[in-house]
Design a protein around this nucleic acid. Structure first.
Lengths: 334, 334
DNA sequence: TTGAAAGCGATACCAT
DNA sequence: ATGGTATCGCTTTCAA
């Protein structure tokens, strides 16, 4: 493989000049630029990215940490990130954190050892202080779906509380007054905020929040099932269930159906996230859209702007959720 | 950040010796090894991966190309790859090809420009010749879900034909004799092979293959819907539909349901892949399992063995599919 | 506008 | 077992 040296020789210029046309930055006389480019083409020259990185202290790589890779949610987020980065000639190095503190730390450590130029993190378990320190240590950090006050400018998040509000509001507006809630793990910010929105929606209608009608799940199938079973077993009356995410909603739907309840005739259900399979469920699941692809793209854009100095890009830190009304909600039986 | 030079100074040894303990390869006296390690710890030394790469011609990174990042299938595959690679201290650089020839070439080009040590490709559109040439040019290549005869040793694939056979066999065994088939795009190998399996299963039961009962879809929702509509509109009689993948099966189920057909009582359906949402469908979708996580892991293992010389690892090139019998299949009405 | 030369931080070959 | 040193391919002052 040809090196910059051979190019400079063939073009009859110095190393430095070749480097300049390579980084099409500095002023280079047009004729010499052409000479150099011809030489490059003739030699089928490709810059060696490792040498570039070593000399420039830039790897053009961005470290990504997500909780999981399977499942519909993070794939969509990565899609948004990858497209934006690659379009700019950068690339993503992806690691998985499993919502576990040790593994998240390990993943971040790994990425830093790879000399990434920046980090895009969707973390659950590490502390705010740690993130703060990380950022102070010189690695630019963008956080998705997490707000750390001291790092507000580099947080890309959904207005989860508003989402929770919209979800509960959707069933209240249909006339429901006895509304159960299956939350995500409340130590996770987003789960707690969604619950807050739920409570606020109830309050706005002058309804009391009843913790007996609330169960804490795990954002996954098993937790959704268990929570629904408990609610049914409690003997309490409710005509609608608001769920912290779609997976739990799907699970709840299944359990309710098996218990002989007709959905939505006897029980309305709404989820959160609008992941792909909502449309396939029977009945189709109402939900709150989480524009995770756009948010991933925005995180990438943040990096392009703040790390690679593309100042044309505008950053939006907070995204607004939106209701998708589908068949799983109807007015309560009279 | 401390360099290898400072470590050597503090430990009172040469650069070369530090490098040796770093790559804990060569024989180094135990006492000096300890001295060096102490110095490293004292300085909080981290090797610079770029410098290592430049000098060793190894980036410890593996390029991955997948058709899509959203959706349940490739996320699972990447999960298998990432876990195996990171466990070995390597990392994945992921790009997307969109099953489009130009984009696939572009992605591969991008990865090569990043000096990846190897490529793991799930490609649809590029030619066998191209892949062959790519491999000849010195970049080790592993292919997932594609068999190129000349590269047989580096292909990790599912026995798609057997899968197609099992799927059709499953409905035939229930007594169905009029079986429709919705295939994936037949220019894709896997789609064609699955169809072959279908035909073979029919032949084994002494049934004639009827191309009028076969429609070519696109492995996606829209294609599945359209194909099902056409089948219903054709007026031909059939009591079961075998689909090339789960997404089309879900779509077909929906269309059939809307047309007033009861599933499975009036129409049995089976899919392929066993992606996550099969369990959530109503009725639960029977399908053929595609062990894509294990296959991703195996591809990573191939790289560890052939590129990084970990000869302890064993390679399995062909994976066998397996039937998941769920509620969407019953014997035909009498 | 262009060139010369000093790194960047490791690896690996050749000695000793 | 350890050290000396050339080398990897490029970026980036500093001069001219």
């Amino acid at each position: 493989m040809a090196t910059i040296y051979e190019v400079s020789e063939l073009a009859g210029v110095s190393l430095a000049t070749v480097s300049r046309v390579l980084n099409n930055s500095d002023r280079v006389k047009e004729t010499t630029r052409v000479k150099v480019q011809d030489a490059m083409a003739a030699l089928d020259y490709r810059p060696n990215s490792m040498a570039q990185s070593l000399a420039s202290k830039r790897t053009n790589s961005i470290g990504i940490l997500v909780p999981e890779l399977h499942g519909p949610f993070f794939g969509t987020m990565l899609s948004g990130i990858e497209a934006e980065l690659r379009n700019a000639g950068k690339h993503a190095i992806i690691t998985v954190g499993h919502s576990d503190r040790e593994k998240e730390l390990d993943g971040i450590e790994f990425l830093i050892s790879r000399n990434v130029d920046a980090l895009i993190l969707h973390v659950d378990a590490v502390s705010d202080e740690y993130l703060h320190k990380l950022s102070d240590n010189g690695t630019p950090v963008v956080l998705i779906n997490r707000r750390v006050a001291a790092l507000a400018d580099s947080c890309i998040s959904l207005n989860n509380q508003q989402g929770g509000y919209l979800a509960t509001r959707a069933v209240l507006d249909q006339g429901h007054r006895q509304v159960a809630y299956i939350s995500g793990p409340l130590w996770k910010n987003d789960a707690a905020e969604r619950l807050l929105g739920h409570q606020q929606a109830l309050a706005d209608k002058g309804l009391a929040f009843d913790s007996a009608l609330t169960r804490e799940g795990d954002f996954q199938e098993t937790g959704g099932k268990e929570a629904m079973r408990q609610l049914l077993a409690s003997g309490l009356a409710f005509t609608a269930v608001v769920c912290g995410n779609d997976e739990m909603a799907a699970a709840a739907m299944e359990v309710a159906g098996k218990s002989g309840l007709l959905i939505p005739e006897q029980l309305s259900i709404i989820g959160f996230d609008n992941i792909n399979f909502c449309r396939y469920l029977h009945p189709k699941l109402s939900t709150i859209e989480y524009p995770i692809d756009a948010m991933g793209q925005m995180a990438a854009r943040w990096v392009l702007r703040h790390v690679y100095k593309n100042n044309k890009l505008l950053i939006q830190n907070i995204f607004e959720p939106r209701l998708y009304h589908r068949a799983s909600i109807t007015p309560p039986a009279a």
